Lab assay of single mutants.
Amino acid sequence: SDEELKKRIEELVRRGNKDEARKLAENANSDEARKWWEKLEQL
């Protein structure tokens, strides 16, 4: 689900694993996940 995906992306970003988070968001084929990633990346 998008919610689970967003949690995983956020967790990866928090751990400093941005590349992994980006790949996850891009491969998810989910606009919501991509937007979430872009938002987190700004922080």
Rank of each mutant, 00 (worst) to 15 (best):
E20D: 08
E3D: 13
A33P: 03
D19L: 05
S30E: 04
K23Q: 12
L40R: 00
E38K: 00
A33L: 15
L5W: 12
L43P: 06
N17A: 12
E41W: 07
A28L: 15
D19H: 07
D19E: 13
K39E: 15
R15V: 13
N29D: 13
L24I: 08
W37F: 14
E41P: 01
K18W: 15
V13K: 01
A25K: 01
W37R: 01
L24S: 03
E41N: 13
W37G: 01
N17V: 05
R22I: 06
A21H: 01
E11F: 00
E10W: 03
E3M: 12
E38L: 00
E20C: 07
R14Y: 00
L43G: 10
A28R: 04
L24F: 01
L24E: 03
Q42P: 05
K6P: 01
N17G: 05
E3H: 11
N27T: 13
I9A: 01
V13S: 02
K7M: 08
A28E: 06
E20A: 12
E10T: 06
E32P: 05
I9F: 07
L12I: 04
V13T: 02
S30Q: 04
N27L: 13
E3R: 09
V13G: 02
D31G: 05
K7W: 03
E3V: 11
R8D: 04
N17W: 01
D19N: 08
I9E: 01
E26H: 04
S1G: 12
A25I: 15
E32L: 09
A25M: 14
K39A: 14
A25P: 02
S1D: 12
R34D: 10
K39N: 14
E3F: 09
L40C: 09
N29V: 09
L12A: 10
E38I: 00
E41R: 09
A28H: 06
R15A: 14
E3C: 13
R14H: 13
E26C: 06
D31T: 08
E38P: 04
A33V: 15
E4D: 12
R22C: 08
E32S: 10
A28I: 15
L43I: 12
L43V: 09
K6F: 13
G16Q: 02
V13D: 03
K39C: 12
E41K: 09
L43M: 13
D2M: 15
N17I: 06
D31R: 04
E10F: 01
L12F: 00
R34C: 10
E4N: 11
K7A: 13
K6W: 11
L5H: 03
R15H: 12
N27A: 13
D31H: 05
G16K: 01
L5G: 01
A21P: 01
A28M: 15
S1T: 12
E11M: 01
A21D: 02
L43C: 14
L24D: 01
A28D: 05
G16T: 02
A25N: 02
K18P: 10
S1Q: 10
K6L: 14
E4F: 07
E10V: 06
W37Y: 14
E41F: 07
R15Y: 01
L43H: 08
K18G: 09
L24M: 08
A28S: 14
N29R: 10
E3N: 10
L5V: 06
E32M: 10
A33N: 08
R15N: 14
D2W: 15
D31P: 08
G16A: 02
K18V: 15
V13W: 07
S30C: 08
R22S: 06
I9N: 02
K23G: 05
E20T: 05
S1H: 12
W37L: 15
E3S: 10
E20Y: 01
N17S: 10
G16E: 03
W37I: 13
V13H: 11
K7F: 06
R22A: 06
E26K: 03
Q42I: 09
K18Q: 09
S30K: 04
E32I: 09
L5P: 01
N29L: 14
L24P: 01
Q42S: 12
R34L: 15
R15F: 04
E38N: 00
E4K: 08
K6Y: 10
L40P: 00
A33F: 15
W36G: 04
E20K: 05
K18L: 15
E3A: 12
R34Y: 13
R34T: 11
S30W: 09
L43E: 13
R8K: 12
E41H: 08
I9V: 04
E10L: 14
S30L: 06
A33S: 06
A21N: 01
E32T: 09
L12S: 03
A33H: 06
E11H: 05
